[in-house]
Amino acid sequence: MKLRRLIAPLLLFIISGCSKSKDSTPTSNDSIYFPPVTGNSWETILPESLKWKTENIQALYNYLESKHTKSFIVLYNGKMVIEKYFGTHTATTPWYWASAGKTLTSAMVGIAQEEKLLNINNKVSDYIGSGWTSAPLAKENLITCKHLLSMTSGLDDAYNDNSNEALHDCVSPDCLVYKADAGTRWAYDNVYVKLQDVVAKASGKTWNNYFNEKLRDKTGMTGAWIQTGNMSVYWSHARSMARFGLLAFANGKWNGTQIIPAGYFKEAINTSQNINLSYGYLWWLNGKNSYHLPQSQLEINRNLVPNAPADMYCALGKNDQKIYVVPSKKIVVIRMGDAADELNWALSQFDNELWAKINTVIP
């Protein structure tokens, strides 16, 4: 009888202790490391502690250098595992994001929608007025913010051609020409930049000020939007790109604070339309059955990057600016530099070749 009296409280203690331990298990976001918003400190973790194949890292560096890379970063669960700079490029050298910065615009649209400043299902002209294209008014009114996010505006991408410098990146009305009804044709085009005008008008602030306040400064990013030709392009050092990649890895949350709305971000990194399955809201998606190349209506029936994990989503910019986010491996990979092989819009053969090399290091 005495034994029972002793055992009962002990069992109760053990059960309650187990329950408490289970309840206190950190969520996936809780276990992610975030560097301080101010200062330059960033916790590191050794690749050998992750059982990565360290004997192959130098060969990876040699390959990256041969492909005109300027900076290369790999994070694991937020901590810095690899940070390598080539030539005269350093941790403080700014470089352009090119179209990898499209994902910054995607994020800002989601933030503005969460603040009820806009609705992505509303037509673009609700915010910036009619006549922003040269399409007939009835056709222009078909174009919603979501069409710009998903590259399905129906506007003619031939007017955004690398081969014609006079038209390159042109987003004035005379370059935004009707080709098909919105939602019926996918075409990679810089017309998405009109979303920055939408956000500015909807917020009553300049694009730069709203971006800095709502995203850049909250994550400790540095950098600025620089006018390059007809486009505003984001420039920063590689660590700032890594901070944004980490924000994306954490599903829009930074150290406990939801910056990009979670529901919107989930939409952004999933197929946004039924034409190019490998495209979300200005994010490229791996692991789908097919994809369309920029400046092409050809459907290619395979994964976007066969050598990369199927759950990868990525920001891809002209001349091989890269943010790869891979939840299954808990990694974010950053690559900045000149074109690896030849000038390209975003996706290139380099993506698949680089992942073959990364796979020799990260099992």
Score class of each variant (00 low, 15 high):
250 A>P: 06
247 L>Y: 02
246 L>N: 07
251 N>S: 14
300 I>L: 12
312 M>Y: 04
279 Y>W: 10
266 K>F: 09
333 V>K: 01
260 I>F: 00
306 P>G: 10
247 L>C: 08
340 A>N: 03
252 G>A: 11
238 A>P: 03
325 V>S: 05
281 Y>R: 06
254 W>V: 00
324 Y>Q: 05
305 V>H: 01
262 A>K: 12
273 Q>R: 09
329 K>A: 10
313 Y>F: 12
270 N>M: 08
325 V>R: 03
258 Q>D: 13
342 E>G: 15
338 D>N: 14
282 L>A: 04
262 A>D: 11
264 Y>N: 05
271 T>R: 07
304 L>M: 13
315 A>E: 06
263 G>W: 08
265 F>E: 00
263 G>M: 11
274 N>C: 09
279 Y>F: 11
275 I>Q: 05
247 L>V: 04
269 I>H: 00
275 I>R: 07
277 L>H: 12
303 N>I: 06
332 V>T: 10
257 T>C: 06
239 R>D: 10
340 A>E: 06
260 I>K: 00
290 S>Y: 11
315 A>C: 09
275 I>C: 08
302 R>K: 15
309 P>Q: 08
241 M>P: 08
319 N>V: 03
314 C>I: 13
324 Y>R: 05
326 V>F: 05
279 Y>T: 03
300 I>G: 08
335 R>Q: 01
307 N>K: 12
319 N>R: 04
274 N>T: 09
339 A>M: 11
288 K>C: 11
316 L>M: 09
260 I>S: 00
291 Y>D: 03
288 K>G: 09
274 N>Q: 12
254 W>H: 00
337 G>H: 07
332 V>W: 02
253 K>D: 12
263 G>H: 11
289 N>D: 14
298 L>N: 15
300 I>V: 14
288 K>M: 12
261 P>T: 03
316 L>F: 02
258 Q>C: 10
237 H>I: 14
286 N>H: 09
288 K>S: 12
320 D>I: 04
247 L>K: 05
328 S>G: 04
301 N>K: 15
303 N>T: 14
266 K>Y: 13
259 I>E: 03
307 N>Y: 06
323 I>G: 02
269 I>E: 00
311 D>L: 05
339 A>G: 13
318 K>Y: 11
313 Y>N: 01
284 W>F: 10
257 T>A: 10
313 Y>S: 03
296 S>N: 07
328 S>Q: 06
259 I>K: 03
329 K>N: 13
278 S>I: 00
256 G>K: 07
309 P>T: 01
250 A>N: 13
258 Q>R: 10
324 Y>G: 01
262 A>Q: 14
332 V>K: 03
338 D>I: 12
303 N>V: 13
